[in-house]
Nucleic acid binder design. Sequence first.
DNA 1: CAAGATTGAGTCATCAATCTTA
DNA 2: TAAGATTGATGACTCAATCTTG
Lengths: 155, 155
Amino acid sequence: MTDPDDRVAAWRALLLAHARVLRAIEDDLLRAGAIPLTWYDVLLELNAAPGRRLRMAELADTVVLSRTRVSRLVDELQAAGLVQREPCPDDRRVTWAALTEDGRAALRRAAPIYLDSIDRHFTALLGTTERRTITRALDRVVAQHDRAARVRLRR
Amino acid sequence: MTDPDDRVAAWRALLLAHARVLRAIEDDLLRAGAIPLTWYDVLLELNAAPGRRLRMAELADTVVLSRTRVSRLVDELQAAGLVQREPCPDDRRVTWAALTEDGRAALRRAAPIYLDSIDRHFTALLGTTERRTITRALDRVVAQHDRAARVRLRR
DNA sequence: CAAGATTGAGTCATCAATCTTA
DNA sequence: TAAGATTGATGACTCAATCTTG
């Protein structure tokens, strides 16, 4: 509909692709009876972190959610026994969100479903070069935004 | 953090870029006192449509929102005088959402702000080749999903 | 007073049920 | 009976205010 060379085409494509793929993945997870995507993302980030734990604020930054939302999400995950809150001895203002053994197990169970879904609904639809270009370019976009946000804070 | 060649890197990058850029654009629009992004998207699609009007269901499909949400959005836009509901003579089940003159004016006012914001927060951060690759690849992803959805309906 | 985290209140968005017409 | 659209109930998410510690 729009001129493929115009200034918003790439952004529009990203917006639509995001909506379609996300919807497809969430439907998959629901059908498979797996944990919701937000839970998975939190567990994944915690698992990748040193000591398998992260401050609440750090967690909120890596995941695409507000700190408020992460606070509530960790409430749920803790109630489900997948995450534990732990006090930080160095600075008693911060609380760690730490992955439990049950949390690791839940992550291991969900991972194949999740990876397969991403593969089928997104990665498999891209060529190798396209995939690399997209990863590199969008990672750079994210980095620029994060850098800009840090500068904005400093003032 | 993750291996740049792994299967989820591209999807993860898209997810993060989407969140960062969308946030930045919405902040811009708010600061500029412009209409919200969802309003803009609706007006834009209506403006591009033949006769500057679309069925509610068609509108929901081009925009990344549910039919329910579009129904409520058109309520607001109609109250603001930017869109009008019109009955369809051929099929009295459908209602058209039609752009008003005020709606066109609002769109013309918002467009430069919106375009500039997309440019600064997204397009300008991409190389020409990257931009073309992303547009082409993601458009194809969207097309595949839409095709799959159509096939799913047919059964 | 600033930073980290949580809570209260309100908005955004969707699902299921409903109404109307084909 | 199904398709198009809207409404009611509910969940997802965020902003502003609050609490606690540095």
